[in-house]
Amino acid sequence: CHSECLGNCSQPDDPTKCVACRNFYLDGRCVETCPPPYYHFQDWRCVNFSFCQDLHHKCKNSRRQGCHQYVIHNNKCIPECPSGYTMNSSNLLCTPCLGPCPKVCHLLEGEKTIDSVTSAQELRGCTVINGSLIINIRGGNNLAAELEANLGLIEEISGYLKIRRSYALVSLSFFRKLRLIRGETLEIGNYSFYALDNQNLRQLWDWSKHNLTITQGKLFFHYNPKLCLSEIHKMEEVSGTKGRQERNDIALKTNGDQASCENELLKFSYIRTSFDKILLRWEPYWPPDFRDLLGFMLFYKEAPYQNVTEFDGQDACGSNSWTVVDIDPPLRSNDPKSQNHPGWLMRGLKPWTQYAIFVKTLVTFSDERRTYGAKSDIIYVQTDATNPSVPLDPISVSNSSSQIILKWKPPSDPNGNITHYLVFWERQAEDSELFELDYCLKGLKLPSRTWSPPFESEDSQKHNQSEYEDSAGECCSCPKTDSQILKELEESSFRKTFEDYLHNVVFVPRKT
């Protein structure tokens, strides 16, 4: 048989008469490798580009789960590009990614509803959504962080984005990388972005840091009482949809009607710091009717980097990364020049730590249904340095008659930039024990000054392991946590139920 035959053949030295091919099969003959313009397919066939392209389009058009959109890589027609490569849609070739590779997620039936953290986790790592997304989240724990972890990498949506009755959302900033909504599939009414009845939605994105392009379709905003109209108009300008909307697409009466839409800028007039305090004062603000001013709200939190936005980490279910302080308005003076500047002394802060701070007014709604208010920009203030805590785990070892090696770990709280350490030492008198000992005694162990690591005695271990207080009263049991108490109650309830079950099964009433 021919060298490319495997198993047997019907005619000697003829690659077209093989029972099976050793390498690849091409047009009725066995070959060692697939010549151009053919590609290896499933490690035994040679196919042309049209064959591989037909497989790709067949799966793409069917949208069946589990099928493969075949691509070409290293002269092979394979189910998908290997790690580190992405497909070129024009020629199906796998090309190296520039940075992290995109991950295209194809949605069944063309859309997916995100109504819980669990459903959001199914899209973790996706960068391109081939379909439409509907966000409908009523509640949950730590929602802002969970949504950002699972949806934060999405850069492109081919269909539309719909935010509907998501009472738990305060902001859409968890879509931190969303840059493009194509609108290839539109919501009824030709809408590519749809926001309806979101009672706590206050911000779409921080438009000073976020760009969003909507290729096709219109915007729809109705019944978002805490979303200011200025935020919607800003989205029109940034996304390129200005002029597409009709009169009733953006409701003037049901958007922002319960919001404090600040239209003035508060400026800080005085800032002073110490290692654990920050004193702030800002310019006074009074609405047209000074009785509408209820006070100020001061927001602050630790910020290692200057990239904080107002609604980071917030949701309507209680999660809030900001510390909020309510401040009463100052006494009002008739003389504008003698107006008191409101302020606040922030206490209990960490030394040498940068804080993000902003302040906003708290006002009631005027009778004319106009909203007044003022808010400052987010500023960054760093507390002063102070003395560091003591170095940890000092170790001293003498390696000769004239040297001592000293080692330690950095302090747990540096409280500033540590530039150097101060080492103090003092000579001590020799131990009298060394002169009084009889060095001729056998088995004498000389006193040693070398360091030995501390260890816990058996008594201390027994005390720590004991669940009861000892007789001397030195140790006591740790208080039980809520989960331990709940577990004990469940076990007790189970024992009672099981005992009742045994009584009912074992003891049967005697027939009379």
Rank of each mutant, 00 (worst) to 15 (best):
K103N: 09
V104S: 09
C105A: 00
H106L: 07
H106T: 11
L107N: 07
L108K: 07
E109H: 15
K112N: 02
T113P: 05
I114F: 02
I114Y: 04
A120F: 05
A120R: 02
A120D: 01
Q121N: 12
L123E: 01
G125W: 05
G125R: 12
C126K: 01
T127N: 07
T127L: 06
V128Q: 01
N130E: 07
G131V: 00
L133D: 00
I134W: 14
R138D: 04
G139A: 03
E146M: 12
A149S: 04
A149P: 04
N150K: 10
N150F: 14
L151A: 04
L151G: 01
L151K: 00
L151W: 03
G152T: 02
L153G: 10
I154E: 00
E155H: 12
E156R: 02
I157D: 00
S158Q: 08
S158W: 11
Y160N: 04
L161E: 00
S166Y: 02
S166T: 10
Y167T: 15
A168I: 05
L169R: 01
S171H: 15
L172Y: 02
S173T: 11
F174K: 00
R176N: 04
R176A: 06
K177A: 04
R179E: 10
G183S: 03
G183R: 02
G183N: 00
E184D: 15
E187W: 15
I188H: 09
I188S: 09
Y191N: 04
S192A: 03
F193Y: 04
Y194N: 13
A195E: 00
L196S: 10
L196G: 06
D197L: 15
N198T: 02
Q199A: 07
Q199C: 14
N200Y: 11
N200R: 09
R202G: 02
Q203D: 15
W205K: 03
W205Q: 02
W205R: 02
D206F: 06
D206E: 12
W207L: 05
S208G: 14
K209G: 11
H210A: 05
N211D: 11
L212R: 00
L212V: 13
L212N: 01
T213V: 14
T213R: 12
I214H: 02
I214W: 05
T215E: 09
T215F: 08
Q216A: 11
L219S: 05
L219E: 01
F220K: 14
F221N: 00
H222R: 09
N224A: 01
K226Y: 11
L227Q: 02
C228G: 02
L229P: 02
S230H: 06
E231N: 02
H233V: 09
K234R: 12
M235G: 06
E236M: 07
E237S: 08
E237V: 06
V238S: 11
S239T: 06
S239C: 10
T241P: 07
T241N: 11
T241Q: 14
G243W: 03
R244L: 13
R244Q: 07
R244K: 13
Q245E: 13
Q245V: 10
Q245L: 06
E246Q: 15
E246A: 07
E246M: 05
E246Y: 09
R247T: 12
N248H: 02
A251V: 09
A251T: 10
A251H: 07
L252Q: 12
L252C: 14
K253Q: 13
G256V: 07
D257F: 07
D257K: 13
Q258C: 08
Q258M: 10
Q258S: 13
A259C: 15
C261I: 03
E262V: 05
N263H: 05
N263S: 10
N263L: 05
E264A: 03
E264R: 12
K267N: 11
F268R: 00
S269D: 12
S269Q: 05
S269T: 07
Y270R: 05
S274F: 13
I278R: 00
L279T: 01
L280S: 01
R281C: 15
W282G: 00
P287C: 13
D289A: 05
F290P: 15
G295K: 13
F296R: 00
F296D: 03
L298R: 00
L298T: 02
L298F: 14
F299K: 14
Y300R: 03
Y300L: 07
K301P: 00
K301M: 12
K301R: 11
E302H: 15
A303P: 01
A303N: 05
A303V: 14
P304E: 09
Y305H: 09
N307W: 09
V308K: 06
T309S: 15
E310W: 06
E310S: 11
G313S: 05
G313A: 09
D315P: 09
C317T: 03
S319I: 11
N320T: 14
S321P: 03
S321H: 12
W322F: 09
W322G: 02
W322A: 07
T323K: 08
T323N: 14
V325G: 02
D326N: 15
I327D: 00
P329L: 06
P329F: 05
P330T: 06
L331K: 11
L331H: 09
L331I: 13
L331G: 15
L331M: 13
S333P: 05
S333H: 10
S333K: 13
S333V: 07
S333L: 06
N334A: 08
N334R: 13
D335N: 06
S338C: 04
Q339D: 15
H341I: 08
H341N: 14
P342S: 08
L349H: 00
L349T: 02
L349G: 00
P351T: 12
P351D: 02
T353M: 01
T353V: 07
Q354C: 01
Q354W: 12
Y355L: 01
I357N: 00
I357M: 02
F358K: 09
V359T: 02
V359K: 01
V359M: 03
V359F: 02
T361Y: 04
L362S: 05
L362N: 06
L362E: 03
V363I: 15
D367F: 06
E368D: 15
E368M: 09
E368I: 13
R369L: 12
R369W: 10
T371W: 13
G373N: 04
G373V: 04
A374Y: 05
I379K: 05
I379F: 04
I379E: 05
Y380M: 04
V381Y: 02
V381P: 05
Q382A: 15
T383Q: 00
A385P: 11
T386F: 14
N387L: 04
N387M: 09
V390P: 15
P391Y: 04
P391H: 03
L392A: 14
D393T: 11
P394S: 13
I395H: 11
S398P: 14
N399L: 10
S400Y: 15
S402M: 15
Q403C: 08
I404G: 00
I404Q: 09
I404S: 02
K407M: 13
K409C: 14
P410S: 15
